[in-house]
C-alpha cells in the first residue's frame, strides 16, 4: 500500500503542471490551428473550411520576411555565440570569488523593460543622436551615415537583447567541467589550445546547444527590434503576424504564418541537434 502510494506520488505532484500546460498551451495551439484553416473576415465572421491554401497564400505573400527573419535570427545567434562563449569562459574560470557579481552585472540591464531597452538603443543609434551626432559634426563620419533602419541595427538589437540567454547556459556547462579533467589534458601533453578543443569545448557543448535554442527561437520570432530599430526594409515575420492579427484582423493568415514559423524552427532545431550529435548532446546534458 505504501509502495503504491509512493509510486503514484510523483504523478500526482506533476498533475497541476500538466493541467496548466493542457489548458494554457495545448488548447490555444489547437484553437489557432483550427483558425488557420478558416476563411472569412472580421465583419462576416470566419467559417471552418479546412482551406490549407491559407498556408500557401501566406507563405507566397510573406516568404521574403520569413527568410529575412531566419537570416537575422541566425546571424544574431552566431554573433551572440562568439561574444558569449569568451565571456562565459572568463567568468567560469577566471571569475574567482566575484563570479556571482559578474553574472549579476550581466543581467542588470534586464531589470529594465525589453521594449524600453530597445527604444534606448534607438536613441543611441539615431542618425544625429548622442553617438553619431558628435562624430558627424566633427567630420569623422559622412553626413548621410546611418545605422538605424538597417540590417545592422536590427541584428545588433537582437544580439544585445538575447545575449544573456546565451551566456548563462554556457557558463553553467563550463562550471560543471571538472578542473582535474582539464589538468589531465595538460598532463597528457595537450597544449592550451588542444585542451580547449578536445576537452573543454566538447564538455561545454550542452550549454552551447541550450543557449542556441534559447536565443535563436525568440530572436527569429521577435517583432520588437525590427519595429523599433528597423525600417520598412527590415520587417520580420513577427511584425507581419502582429499586423495581420491586430491591424488587419486577418486571423487565418496570422495563424498560418505562426504555424509555418513554428514548423520551420522545429525543423531547424532538429537538424541542428542531429548535426551536433544528438546522442552526445543529450547524453552530456542528462548528466
Amino acid at each position: 500500500m505504501r509502495r503504491a502510494k509512493a509510486a503514484v506520488a510523483p504523478y500526482l505532484l506533476a498533475l497541476p503542471a500538466w493541467i496548466w500546460f493542457a489548458i494554457f498551451f495545448v488548447v490555444p495551439i489547437a484553437a489557432m490551428a483550427s483558425v488557420s484553416l478558416t476563411t472569412g473576415n472580421i465583419l462576416e465572421g470566419f467559417q471552418q473550411t479546412l482551406s490549407f491554401s491559407n498556408y500557401a497564400d501566406a507563405v507566397g505573400q510573406y516568404h521574403v520576411q520569413l527568410i529575412r527573419s531566419l537570416i537575422y535570427g541566425g546571424t544574431a545567434t552566431v554573433i551572440m555565440l562568439l561574444l558569449a562563449y569568451p565571456v562565459a569562459y572568463w567568468i567560469a574560470f577566471k571569475g574567482g570569488r566575484r563570479k556571482s557579481m559578474y553574472l549579476f552585472l550581466l543581467l542588470l540591464p534586464f531589470f529594465v523593460s525589453f521594449v524600453l531597452r530597445t527604444i534606448s538603443w534607438g536613441f543611441l543609434l539615431a542618425d544625429d543622436g548622442i553617438l553619431f551626432g558628435p562624430l558627424k559634426s566633427a567630420g569623422l563620419l559622412p553626413g548621410d551615415f546611418h545605422v538605424l533602419a538597417t540590417d545592422v541595427a536590427v541584428i545588433g538589437g537582437l544580439t544585445y537583447n538575447f545575449l544573456p540567454f546565451m551566456v548563462l547556459p554556457i557558463y553553467v556547462a563550463l562550471g560543471r567541467v571538472d578542473p582535474r579533467v582539464i589538468e589531465a589534458a595538460y598532463d597528457l601533453y595537450a597544449s592550451r589550445w588542444a585542451a580547449f578543443r578536445k576537452v573543454v569545448l566538447p564538455l561545454s557543448l550542452p550549454g552551447v546547444f541550450a543557449g542556441v535554442l534559447m536565443t535563436f527561437v525568440p530572436a527569429t520570432a521577435d517583432p520588437v527590434n525590427a519595429r523599433v530599430l528597423g525600417g520598412t526594409g527590415n520587417t520580420m515575420i513577427g511584425n507581419i503576424i502582429q499586423t495581420e492579427y491586430m491591424t488587419n484582423n486577418d486571423y487565418p493568415t496570422a495563424s498560418a504564418l505562426s504555424f509555418t514559423l513554428m514548423a520551420v524552427l522545429l525543423v531547424g532545431i532538429f537538424a541542428y541537434a542531429r548535426s551536433l550529435g544528438t546522442e552526445n548532446v543529450l547524453e552530456a546534458a542528462a548528466r
Binding site: D178, R180, V181, E183, D187
Partner: peptide, 13 residues
C-alpha cells in the same frame, strides 16, 4: 611524467 589523479579525471565524453 604522467599523473593518475585521485578522482581518475577520465575524459567523460
Amino acid at each position: 611524467v604522467n599523473m593518475v589523479f585521485q578522482s581518475y579525471a577520465l575524459f567523460p565524453h
